[in-house]
Amino acid sequence: MAIVYTKNKAVFSDAAGAEEAETLLEWLGKHPKGKIDLGACVHLHPANLQVMMAAGCLVTVRSSDQDLAAWIDSALKTI
């Protein structure tokens, strides 16, 4: 699984596929203040992205993939 959930944080790694969006949406429904860690993330399916955008998620760790990080900057706020 490319997303691991801790108490109030979703930690992404590698590439998050479309199938993960369902769970992510559910989790965000239960943790409206949930934070996002993209440090080890290299790609995520846009289904995940739009769920996070809708929830107004905050990114705590930007992706170390500079290209991805720049894209995400335009969509999500980083603390």
């Binding site: 479309a18 369902e22 949406l25 965000l28 289904a47 995940n48 955008m53 809708a54 107004g56």
Partner: peptide, 10 residues
């Protein structure tokens, strides 16, 4: 964005 509860991720 709609309410999260009404959102269709796909």
């Amino acid at each position: 964005w709609p309410e999260l509860a009404e959102m269709d991720a796909y």
